[in-house]
Computed example of a mutant assay.
Amino acid sequence: MNSYALLAIGGTLLCGVLAVAGIHVYATGRAQREALVDRLTSTGGRPAGLRTRRFTAVDRRIRRTALGKRIQQRLAATGLDLTAGEFAVYVAGGVAALWLIASAALAPFFGPVAGLFALWAGNTFLNWQRQKRIEAFIGQLPELSRILANATAAGLALRTALSMAAEELEAPAGEELATVTSQLALGRSIDETLGELADRLPSRELVVLVTTLVLSNRAGGTVVGSLRNLTETLQERKETRREVITMLSEVNATAYTLPLLGLGAMIMLNSMDSGSLARMTGHPLGQLAVIVALGLYAVGFIGMRRLGKIEV
């Protein structure tokens, strides 16, 4: 089987994976839209995110393993409507597709490298989705603090105020607070439920808010003044975080651009002299040189990402 056939197979497989992912996103968005329409028109309907699960047999098997349980916990933290089995199948398809494409377009040596990159990309995607959800939740904290302050000022209990905030706020704050109120309805304490919320979405702002609510609940004092002062502080921190992210966007973009330039250089070299990468990686010294180069790119990428990560 020549390189063009492998490239065609890999491209077809990658297109299939992207098509399945696109269908999944479309089905999820359509279900959420129908649920929102049902909620606004007060006609009932199925809950948001309800859909037919795929790869149920794979999901049952993988949930029994420690890796499957860890994947499911991380998916729950991201808010994605995916099961561990679905995510594992999508990642496996991406690994196979990139392996075939790299083997055909570059050299067989780069197939395993591309497979490892696909695994890293899947893990990075989960981290990115989790951080994105945390950032969105932090952006809603000033409004959450304002709702809680107004509710407690009206004489409502903290449990009732949290339930009201869950109904008023959009996702992800609304979903997380709905989970909190459901746990409170089952008899769990406010300290435990709010502590688990801070563990799921770790941030300094949320820790401050949770600490304020927990201490006020234990002492039995009023939280109106504290929450209103906290609302102003959270709003200022929100603007500061936005400015810092804007200032560091160039550094983060450069961290992703440099590895892409290296990949483009290899593709250009192989296109100018067909089979040059295969001949180079066919020798142990050539393989060592490629591994060292990839390691240096990885060190540079990690270093630039560290420079572009500032805790506010």
Rank of each mutant, 00 (worst) to 15 (best):
I9K: 06
G10D: 00
G16E: 03
G22L: 04
I23M: 10
G29W: 09
A31E: 01
V37S: 08
R39G: 11
L40K: 04
T41F: 10
L50A: 15
R51D: 06
R51N: 05
R51L: 06
T52R: 15
R54M: 13
T56G: 14
A57M: 13
R60E: 14
T65Q: 05
Q73G: 13
G79F: 05
D81R: 14
A84K: 02
G85T: 04
F87D: 05
F87L: 13
A88I: 08
V89T: 05
G93H: 04
G94Y: 05
G94Q: 04
W99S: 05
L100G: 02
L106K: 02
T124P: 12
R130W: 04
Q131S: 15
I134C: 02
A136I: 06
F137E: 03
I138G: 07
Q140V: 04
S145Y: 01
A154Q: 09
L156W: 07
A161P: 01
S163K: 07
L169S: 03
A171S: 10
P172M: 08
G174M: 05
Q183A: 14
S189F: 11
T193C: 10
T193F: 07
V210N: 00
A219G: 14
A219K: 12
G225C: 13
N229A: 15
K238N: 15
K238L: 14
E239L: 13
E239I: 15
R241Q: 12
I245T: 15
L248P: 01
A253L: 11
A253N: 09
L258P: 04
L261Q: 10
L261A: 15
L263P: 04
G264C: 08
M280L: 14
Q287A: 09
I291S: 06
I291D: 03
G300Y: 01
R305G: 12
R306K: 15
G308M: 10
